[in-house]
Design a protein around this nucleic acid. Structure first.
Lengths: 203, 203
DNA sequence: TTATATTTTAAACACTTGTTTAACTTCACA
DNA sequence: TGTGAAGTTAAACAAGTGTTTAAAATATAA
């Protein structure tokens, strides 16, 4: 009876997000979404024209959350090493709070139409980024060894995200409960930046 | 007209693997599998009792290929550094030759029932592994710094597999064609082992 | 060849899917 | 208060789903 009431459109979207994230596009059924939202099936098509359009808006939001966030952090004007530590820390927390996003984004992206990336100006944002310039400067100062930005990004993101993608296997092998897995990820907050810096520092 | 004839059961399985890998369990349709195999729909259920059972057998095979392969390589009796270089090299090649396997395995594993792992003795294979002992020995000899086997495994696999999972994005951002992406992965064959060794070597 | 089992087929079945319809209710406002 | 718009509903629609059936074709063996 508290302020939990939302307008119908928002209720549907919230329910759809939950269902799509858990089951994917094909696995999610409109009736399931309607049930989760507690509304009539027809209302889903009344507010959003089709399943595909509803999915698309949710996909875009989560794509932006998943990749936009890392790009934003990369472009903060912070010294490189501090930045890497900070990104790993904050991105790990983000992924732990939203563990379904990575597999959702990547699985639905198998067919991979350019459209999404173009609409989000992904390439431009990275090419013209402060991060790219920062890396070049650190290299020419002799502070770090040369590395392509994309390799560094893949290393940061992959090291954080992959254990989440493989979480059932990781938890089974490591015999982790929910807290155990969280602690495993906390350990990586130290390992991953140290490893990256160990590589980057010139010999 | 050459020796391309197979028995029906094998034809169905081969077609099913291709379709399941590309579209996932929900996205794959029996009629599509039957068409790809060039057989009547009913034959799919004649040879395999149901869609689920057909899927299960294919999933198991690919799970074994995906994780079994890395476990096997980890347990070869080779000096640690040599081994890491070799694994990254060979596993990268394997993933490049079978790029659909990782997202297939991980996406279908969202719900993550223990059953598969138990049947494949995943935990035991890792716990009692030569690799685990080897790591401990290297640590006590002072050759490397302490690290949990699972962290090292996640780092190796994540660094190789993640770019494949994010391939559409990577290729778009890096403006790669098929060869360009392959070359990007070839570069990682050097970066990833060097980074891991830079971390492991004691200060 | 004949009889028996195996394989293959077209058709249908029962059910679920996303979507639409047309009637009904609620609301805003002149 | 009355009127049109917006919101909601149960029901139906057409297409697609995995699966089964019963008959036909083919292979196997006596």
């Amino acid at each position: 009876m508290a302020g939990e009431e939302q307008d119908t459109e928002a209720k549907i979207k919230r329910a759809a997000e939950q269902v799509f994230l858990e089951y994917g596009y094909e696995g999610a059924k409109i009736r399931q979404i309607a049930d989760a939202a507690g509304v009539n099936i027809a209302l889903v098509n009344y507010y959003f024209r089709s399943k595909e359009q509803l999915f698309k808006s949710i996909y875009m939001e989560n794509f932006r959350a998943f990749f936009g966030r890392i790009v934003m952090m990369l472009n903060e004007e912070t010294p490189l090493e501090v930045k890497i530590w900070k990104i790993v820390d904050r991105y790990t927390d983000f992924i732990l709070d939203n563990p379904l996003i990575p597999i959702f984004i990547l699985a639905e992206n198998r067919k991979g139409s350019d459209v999404f990336f173009k609409e989000l100006h992904v390439r431009e944002v990275i090419k013209s980024a402060y991060f790219t310039k920062q890396l070049q400067e650190e290299v020419s100062k002799g502070n770090i060894r040369p590395i392509k930005p994309l390799h560094l990004i893949m290393t940061i993101v992959g090291n954080i995200v992959f254990p989440i993608l493989a979480r059932p296997i990781v938890s089974y092998v490591g015999d982790f409960d929910s807290d155990g897995f969280r602690q495993f990820m906390e350990e990586r907050k130290k390992i991953v930046p140290e490893m990256i810096m160990a590589y980057l520092r010139p010999v």
